[in-house]
């Protein structure tokens, strides 16, 4: 058990390091001269030299990499070129928005996908099953941003029930929740399409096992058998997919924030691209990639929590 934890943690740290090397290399080696990328071709030599000095570009690459990582570990991502404030401040300011959206999206996804998947499995080869499978096939093919546009056209433009976009912060919770509803639904519908399928097939597999018959023979209701006996046993593949979907969730929040003009990290990253603000883009890409890697690491650890047999084996 301890050895398993040690190996996984080591692997996690190494992956994070490798990710940081890739991000640093793409952002600093590929452009040749980042200062030139930021300021453009017609910048004066003086301005370029000043910016090189400010970004620490005169030091060797390896030194720059290590100081970037070292500072980042202490929460210092450098100075945003376009906003003229520390990148960490920008992130702190926008992070709550992104986290609200991601958490809400994930929760709704889980509720939707698990109920649809379990329902489909319980209704195997009957109408409910076909319905869920059809919807999920469709959900996989529908781009989140198009679904968002359709939702806005229906609920904001036509029915005027909900705002079409924007977010004014949590000071007015009702308004905040209202402006989060459409983005959350758009994010969750697309995410849950894949997850519902996985839930269904995993649950079907479990339902064939003997202990399900034992549970039924104990007089448990079908509902209880499904949710308390089948679902926990079906969870391992589901959790795997949830972990892998974090990549999609990160992508999803970036896209959705841009569709609904939500002032989160995803919106910030696009503003930074437009402003050629390399330090900010670099910090944000690293942050998003780290979230994906961390999610996969957490999933690895979750297996052990879910399945007591693994604890004995590892």
């Amino acid at each position: 058990m301890a050895y398993f934890l040690f190996r996984r943690t080591l692997g996690f740290v190494l992956t994070l390091l490798a990710v940081s090397v890739v991000v640093f290399a793409v952002m600093n080696v590929l452009p040749g001269d980042p200062a030139l990328t930021i300021l453009g071709m017609d910048a004066s030599d003086d301005a370029l030299a000043a910016l090189r000095e400010q970004l620490g570009l005169n030091a060797p690459l390896v030194t720059r990499y290590f100081s970037w990582v070292w500072n980042a570990l202490q929460g210092d991502f450098g100075l945003s070129h376009s906003f003229r404030v520390p990148v960490s401040e920008l992130i702190a300011e926008r992070l709550p928005m992104t986290i609200s959206l991601a958490v809400a999206g994930m929760l709704v996804t889980l509720v939707l996908a698990l109920s649809l998947g379990i329902t489909a499995a319980a209704q195997h080869r009957r109408a409910g099953d076909w319905g869920v499978m059809f919807l999920s096939q469709l959900g996989i093919a529908v781009p989140a941003f198009w679904l968002s546009i359709l939702l806005v056209m229906l609920f904001a433009v036509k029915l005027r029930w909900l705002p079409p976009g924007g977010f004014a912060g949590w000071s007015d919770p009702v308004a905040a929740i209202r402006s989060l509803i459409l983005p959350t639904v758009a994010l969750a519908l697309v995410q849950s399409a894949v997850l519902a399928r996985v839930t269904r097939s995993s649950a079907l597999e479990v339902m064939r096992q003997d202990f399900v018959r034992t549970a039924r023979a104990s007089g448990l209701s079908q509902r209880r058998v499904l949710w308390r006996h089948v679902l926990p046993n079906a969870l391992v593949p589901i959790v795997t997919i949830v972990g892998m979907q974090f990549a999609a969730l990160v992508t999803g929040t970036i896209v959705i924030e841009n569709v609904f003009y939500l002032p989160g990290l995803g919106r910030l990253i696009f503003q930074s691209i437009a402003n050629r603000d390399l330090p900010t883009v670099q910090a944000l890409v690293m942050l998003f990639a780290a979230i994906v890697v961390t999610a996969n690491f957490v999933v690895d650890l979750l297996y052990v929590v879910i399945d007591p047999r693994l604890k004995a084996r590892t």
Partner: peptide
């Protein structure tokens, strides 16, 4: 099915063939 659920365990109960697989592993 609902009526049967009332009887199972309280009036009729069953032990199955495969003890290895008949218990919820989690």
């Amino acid at each position: 099915e609902r009526d049967w659920q009332q009887l199972r365990s309280r009036r009729v109960a069953m032990v199955f063939q495969e003890p290895m697989a008949a218990l919820n592993p989690l």
